[in-house]
Design a protein around this nucleic acid. Structure first.
Lengths: 131, 131
DNA sequence: GATACCGGTATCCTTTAGGATAGTAGTATC
DNA sequence: GATACTACTATCCTAAAGGATACCGGTATC
């Protein structure tokens, strides 16, 4: 949030805090945003999602998908093939989160670099002490 | 995330998912981002933060502040007045989250409107049925 | 006949987040 | 002398998130 769009009064500050709280209320948790990221590449089946989201268990995946569906972020379509095919797809409303996700993605990459540099610097410091 | 910055291969998809997971790992939870929002208006004292973040208990606030400090997002400065004054302040690294927070803020506002419209539409539908 | 894929459920369990309530030492205020 | 403010900590507790493991019916494949 830049200073330009956040007025500096107490009430305005609380309002900003609440806007962010509202947003977090819907997209909180470890998996929802990553799931929406995975679905950017197009509709996916259950198992495909499970493979993209390493370490997610089917139970959790299924629950999170239901949540996302309830909130209007994904649709679930069953095709009557044998065996059945179930396709999950982002809705237009999920696309309204594009910028949020994109910024989070970019920041995540920068953060990873930041962490790497920190531990490198730390290693240097230890070496210096050792000498 | 726009299609322009996310390549559509399986590996690239997993990488994007992981970038977002990395980001969420640090800023997850109900309070961290709202706290950083509150601190945009300038350094704040403990009680000021508590007032901005309605309903947060001192225990949780204190724990979240420690987390943010450990991750390098805020600094804690004690002034030796009587009684002591403790000031929390965003670091430069917290500012690197500006865009993420700003987008989340904007989306939160739009989402609130969206929800309102939905419930209005629902009310209309109920009326129509009742007639 | 054994194994594997699909789209999940069922059951049980641990961990964490978060909340409720109370209290503390020191100062200032009424 | 009672109350209020600051910046917390301590204790206890609940609810939710998340994970481990196993399993299901159906199909296809080897």
């Amino acid at each position: 949030m830049d200073h330009k769009n956040i007025p500096h009064s107490k009430e305005a500050c609380k309002a900003s805090v609440n806007a962010v709280r509202d947003a977090l209320y819907v997209v909180n948790g470890k998996w929802k945003l990553p799931m929406l990221v995975s679905l950017i590449n197009g509709p996916k089946r259950f198992k495909e999602l499970q493979r993209d989201l390493e370490d997610i268990t089917p139970k959790v995946l299924s629950k999170e998908l239901r949540d996302l569906e309830l909130n209007g972020f994904v649709t679930r379509t069953v095709y009557d093939t044998t065996p059945v095919t179930v396709i999950y797809e982002r809705t237009d409303y999920a696309n309204s989160l594009s910028k949020v996700i994109s910024e989070l993605h970019d920041w995540g990459m920068k953060h990873r670099e930041h962490i790497k540099q920190m531990s490198r610097a730390e290693a240097e410091a230890r070496k210096a002490v050792a000498v």
